[in-house]
Amino acid sequence: MRRLYLDNAATSWPKPDAVYDAVDDWQRRVGASYARGASAAADETRAIVDRARRSVAQLLGESDPRRVVFTNSGTDSLNLALRGLLRAGDHVVSTVCEHNAVLRPLEFLCTEGVETTWVGCDSEGVVSVDEVAAALRPETKLIAIVHASNVTGAIQPVEEVASFAKSQGVRLLVDAAQTLGRLPLDVRSLGADLIAAPGHKGLYGPLGTGVLWLAPGIEEDLRPLRLGGAASGGDRLEMPETLPDKFEAGSLNAPGLAGLAAGVEHVLATGVEAIRQRMTDARGRLASGLAAMDGVRVYGPSEPLRQAGVVSFSTEGYDPHELAMLLASVGGIECRAGLHCAPRMHAALGTARQGGLVRFSPGPGTTDSEIDAAVTAVGRLIASPLT
């Protein structure tokens, strides 16, 4: 049975051929650690990692690639930002729309004297800037907000939140897991202080890669979570203070970063605006096809430009996990069902008690015929529900 992959919100697949080639070439031909030797192979690994860093910086509109820190995942990046920045007595404002990669670190930090205020959302999953502003206190150090929900796809008003945060002297962390590489994102216009993202979603890199962008000055307040060997300062017992070495202890995932370099270069060559347009079209085709069926409810904003390419829905007659399993077994459709590691979001939508939602997330390469096949498969199952 042919695979119909609709789980790009979890990880992008298939990757561009250049990504597979880059990983394979490093593994078979290069093989040397980053900044761990003076051989020609070690020099080539350094050049590959530097190329990946420059490419991510270019995508972000950042002129200084050193401000791009490589991590092991988006979750790793968010943990570094939250647990590295916050101290006992600090207050954080975050939202119910967040992924567990934010919820759980903040829950842990609560045991260490950090307090969080959770801001709600409307029925489409959109947060109010006024409510975020009202939640601030004199001791608020950080606002942590997802750029686009992995459940509803709702794009949050991050620029407006950033403007208000700056006026109050509050730092802003943006989780760009669903948007970096898929929506235009420029650090100068966005106004954030930290931007975290995985490498394996919109950047087309392999699993095991992540990035954290730091605005000027943040590195002075941010503590490294992982300590050890780095690309500089090997004669000292303390971690180096220079970027990005301060936050990159241990051997970097060189084959992963080789693939990431190729993936980001593919995004830059294709153009983020072109990727966004294709994602908007694909999401619209999916959402309209599903919403036209009796017994189907689609969640998230109806306005295409307020949505990041995720279609989550419920159906009468099926538990979301049942439907997802049937779609996989009958139509080869690979999607995601459940709470999507976002329990507060589902509680806010009223979908937690039903076991969550089914989520389709196409990629830029998903064809119209594949989208139509997925819609048809849902329609056939609804027409003959389990009893």
Rank of each mutant, 00 (worst) to 15 (best):
G256M: 15
P206S: 02
A348W: 00
G202Q: 09
A162N: 05
T75I: 06
G169N: 06
P362T: 04
T140D: 08
L323R: 09
A41H: 02
R46S: 12
P255Y: 11
T11H: 15
K246R: 14
T315M: 01
S94Y: 02
A38V: 13
A177T: 14
G84L: 02
Y20G: 13
I333S: 06
C121R: 03
A377P: 00
A230E: 07
M293C: 09
V126S: 10
A176M: 03
W13M: 04
P224Q: 05
A32V: 01
P385C: 04
T242D: 10
V68T: 09
D130C: 15
V264N: 15
A32M: 07
R344D: 11
F247L: 03
D17Y: 05
G210N: 08
R353V: 13
P138R: 14
G259H: 05
D7R: 13
W13D: 12
F164L: 14
E219P: 01
H99S: 13
L180H: 07
R3N: 11
S314E: 15
R29E: 15
V170A: 11
G228C: 02
E62S: 15
A258M: 07
W26R: 00
P244H: 05
G228I: 03
D24N: 14
G208D: 14
A32D: 14
V296Q: 06
G217T: 03
V375N: 02
C110K: 13
D64R: 07
C110P: 00
S361C: 02
D17V: 08
P14T: 10
V30D: 12
R28M: 14
Q27L: 11
C335Q: 08
V298R: 05
D76S: 15
P198H: 09
R359D: 15
Y318F: 14
A148C: 01
A40C: 02
G300F: 07
E124H: 08
V132K: 12
T179L: 11
P240T: 03
G379K: 00
V174D: 00
A35G: 03
S312Y: 07
T111C: 09
C341E: 10
D368W: 09
A291S: 14
P198C: 10
Q168E: 12
K246H: 08
